[in-house]
Each structure stands twice: as C-alpha cells, then as structure tokens.
C-alpha cells in the first residue's frame, strides 16, 4: 500500500480553510457564517491530526479533542445569541445588525 504523503493532507486542509474563510466573510445569513466557521475549525483539526501522524505523538490528537469541545461550546452560545437577537430584530441577516454605525 502506498502511503499518502502528509503534505497532501496539509494542502487539503489549507484549501478547506480557505473555503471556510470565504464563506465566513461573504455570507449574509448568520447561520451560514457559523457553518463556515465550523468548516474552518475542521480544517485546523485535519492539520493537527496529520502532524500527529507525522511526528508519532498523541499531542496533536489531544489538541483536536479540546478543539472539538470548544467548538461545541462556541456553537451553543453563538446560536443562543442568535436566538436572542432574532427575538428583537426578527431577522438573522447580519447586514441588518448595524447599530454601531458611525
């Protein structure tokens, strides 16, 4: 079995991260932004696991563990905030949330 070089995993991870970044910056729907952020987090996770394999150490996997936990917490709180905002504005279009205009 020919093994896949780690660099390919890293490349994939970078591209996924890029896609996620574009999504986070350009979508108008708040939920969609969140989804893009989750995508970025996953890309980072892939990088960490790839290095864990390369270096033969468990540390990378441990970090992924923590990242997942934090991502969960973040998603929960973020969605709760969205709910709260939605109750006031009846919209989750981020363009409409512009009270801090000059």
């Amino acid at each position: 079995m020919s093994a896949v070089p780690i660099s390919w995993y890293l490349l994939l991870s970078a591209v996924l991260f890029g896609i996620g970044a574009i999504g986070a910056l350009t979508r108008r729907n708040g939920i969609s932004i969140f989804l893009s952020v989750e995508l970025m987090l996953n890309a980072a996770n892939l990088t960490l696991v790839a290095y864990a394999r390369q270096l033969g150490s468990h540390t990378g996997q441990v970090i992924v563990f923590f990242v997942m936990a934090v991502a969960a917490a973040e998603a929960a709180v973020g969605l709760a905030l969205f709910i709260a905002v939605f109750r006031q504005r009846h919209t989750i279009d981020v363009n409409r949330m512009n009270l801090m205009r000059w």
Binding site: V4, L35, E38, N45, V49, A52, M68, A71, A75, L79
Partner: peptide, 27 residues
Amino acid sequence: VLFVLLGAPFLGALQILVYAGAIVVLF
C-alpha cells in the same frame, strides 16, 4: 474517514458523535 486514515480512529468516531451528531443537530 480521513482521520481514521491518519491513525486516529477515536477522533474519527468522536467527530461523528460530537460534530455531526450534536452540533449539526443543534444547528
């Protein structure tokens, strides 16, 4: 699947359980 390929099956399982199973459902 890629995680499993990289020698971290536990994390692969965790990914499905937590991410796909909990977070996406929350979404």
